[in-house]
């Protein structure tokens, strides 16, 4: 399982993508920090401390699912398509393959977001632990959703297309649902993570329940397949 985890994480670090993501996130954090410094009193409901991270948080909120889906929409179906999965499935259990890959992806994001927060901590001289946890909860939801997508859609080019649409639609629809009173839209906010981020401690963790559900469903599908 650990071999698969580290391989997945290492593969995600290949190329320019992690550098790009870190640059975008840190760039946005810098923008919000500058804004906070320029208008110390004028931003309502946001503390000065939060200004250091709010650019990053906002970027993740709007584009986090997109980033995660772009990197991981084919995490399972690509190996199934290329049949490399056969080498894994003949050597270890299917649970371990899926969970290994999941943990590898989580590890990647822990490191990426951790790196960003390390920079922010250095510049702000403050620890932003709650914010880090909030973002990781959001990303865990997104990663699990990517796994479910990759286990449901058999072809990687299809999962890229569907993933792209979902990644743009989910934040948009959730925002609509957040402010809407109509019953057929309202329920949407309860199944996406945005609504829960504003809530108090235990309810903040609700997206993790969804993440667990997505992974359980992925496992169920993955264990019933022929390769």
């Amino acid at each position: 399982m650990w071999a698969i985890c580290f391989r997945e994480c290492k593969d995600l670090f290949k190329g320019f993508k992690p550098v790009l993501i870190i640059s975008i996130l840190l760039g946005m954090a810098m923008v919000s920090t500058r804004l906070g410094a320029a208008f110390p009193d004028e931003i309502e409901g946001v503390t000065q401390k939060e200004m250091y991270t709010s650019g990053l948080t906002l970027t993740i909120t709007l584009f986090g699912i997109l980033f995660v889906f772009a990197l991981s929409h084919s995490v399972m179906n690509k190996e199934i398509e290329s049949k490399t999965i056969r080498f894994l499935v003949t050597k270890t259990s299917r649970d371990r393959i899926l969970l290994g890959k999941f943990m590898g992806t989580v590890l990647f994001w822990l490191i990426i977001i951790g790196t960003c927060f390390a920079f922010i901590t250095l510049t702000s001289r403050m620890i932003h632990l709650t914010n880090y946890i909030e973002i990781m909860i959001f990303l865990l939801y997104s990663i699990s959703a990517a796994f479910l997508l990759s286990n449901t859609v058999p072809k990687s080019n299809q999962s890229m297309f569907i993933g792209l649409i979902l990644a743009l639609a989910i934040p948009g629809l959730s925002l609509w649902a957040y402010f809407s009173e109509r019953w057929y839209v309202m329920w949407l906010k309860y199944v996406t993570p945005y609504y829960y981020t504003d809530l108090a401690f235990p309810l903040q963790g609700v997206p993790l329940l969804f993440a667990a559900l997505f992974i359980a469903l992925s496992l169920y599908l993955f264990k019933r397949r022929d390769f």
């Binding site: 071999a3 049949k83 490399t84 080498f87 003949t90 050597k91």
Partner: peptide, 29 residues
């Protein structure tokens, strides 16, 4: 599974890995 070795009828490999890296990885798996 760790006591069984399998050559499937068809499969591809990870193009960016060397033969040695493949063997190391698969053995660890």
């Amino acid at each position: 599974k760790h006591r069984v070795g399998v050559l499937p009828d068809y499969s591809t490999f990870y193009d960016h890995l060397s033969a040695k890296d493949h063997l190391k990885y698969f053995c660890k798996v």
